[in-house]
């Protein structure tokens, strides 16, 4: 008879499970639009053009893709990329979220702008943007870059950026600097932030670099 209170209390624990669903902050996966890449271009009159690469979550399923496209790219002018979330909802039906954001892309023109860091400070104010996302600079406008860039085999676009940045970094082609180090390097004076440089334009001279393999250690100056 001693154990009885314990057992009779046990069913009440089931009610605790109801609390797990949360009240205000519950969100459904199928009610959100996941932005994989944010592109920033210089716009007119101190505004910026924002490009969203929104992934189609159906493509991560095992059963294989449906007839829908794997991703959607939209470009629109905005003041900053926090309020842009709401602006984008005039085209995209679902709620925009940066939770799955895997890369931030900036055009070369905009990254050279002295005002650039001011726009980047919004990163620190939006809790959904993680500071370990990489920052990539493109030669052309980001909107052209994202539309031109069509990986043939990696249709699941949310994996594409993750893989290419990881493996290109392993090969030593690009530095692995994140948004986090962008701030710490730029804020402390006399620092130079090195970002991966990307483009979809083919260079006209398709020659091999002369003598790429013919150096000994210490020869290069």
């Amino acid at each position: 008879m001693k154990n009885r209170p314990c057992i009779s209390h046990f069913p009440f624990l089931i009610f605790v499970l109801l609390l797990l669903s949360g009240c205000w902050d519950q969100t459904n996966i199928d009610k959100r639009a996941y932005v994989i890449a944010i592109g920033l271009d210089k716009g007119e009159k101190n505004k910026i053009n924002i490009t969203y690469l929104i992934s189609n979550p159906e493509f991560s399923k095992q059963e294989g893709p449906s007839s829908e496209p794997s991703h959607e790219i939209i470009t629109f002018p905005a003041n900053d990329f926090i309020s842009a979330k709401n602006t984008a909802n005039s085209i995209v039906a679902k709620e925009i979220t940066y939770n799955m954001l895997s890369v931030m892309i900036v055009s070369e023109e905009f990254s050279k702008d002295p005002e650039f860091i001011r726009y980047m400070y919004d990163v620190t104010k939006d809790r959904e943007i993680k500071h370990n996302n990489p920052l990539v600079v493109t030669k052309e406008d980001v909107s052209t870059f994202l539309t031109e860039n069509k990986p043939k085999l990696e249709t699941r676009i949310h994996k594409y950026f993750e893989f290419i940045l990881e493996n290109a970094n392993k090969a030593g082609l690009i530095p692995s600097f994140k948004l986090h180090s962008y701030f710490s390097i730029t804020e402390s004076d006399a620092g130079l932030f090195l970002a991966p440089y990307a483009t979809t334009q083919r260079t006209t001279s398709g020659k091999y670099t002369a003598g790429e393999d013919e150096f000994l250690a210490g020869e290069l100056d």
Binding site: H131, N132, H180, S184
Partner: peptide, 26 residues
């Protein structure tokens, strides 16, 4: 975070647990 950024972060502990990675867990 370095000393400049950390002055701008109000809750450094929570920012750092959002930044760090535990192996493959992000």
């Amino acid at each position: 975070f370095d000393y400049v950024s950390i002055g701008n972060l109000n809750y450094p502990f929570h920012e750092s647990i959002r930044y760090i990675q535990l192996g493959f867990l992000t």
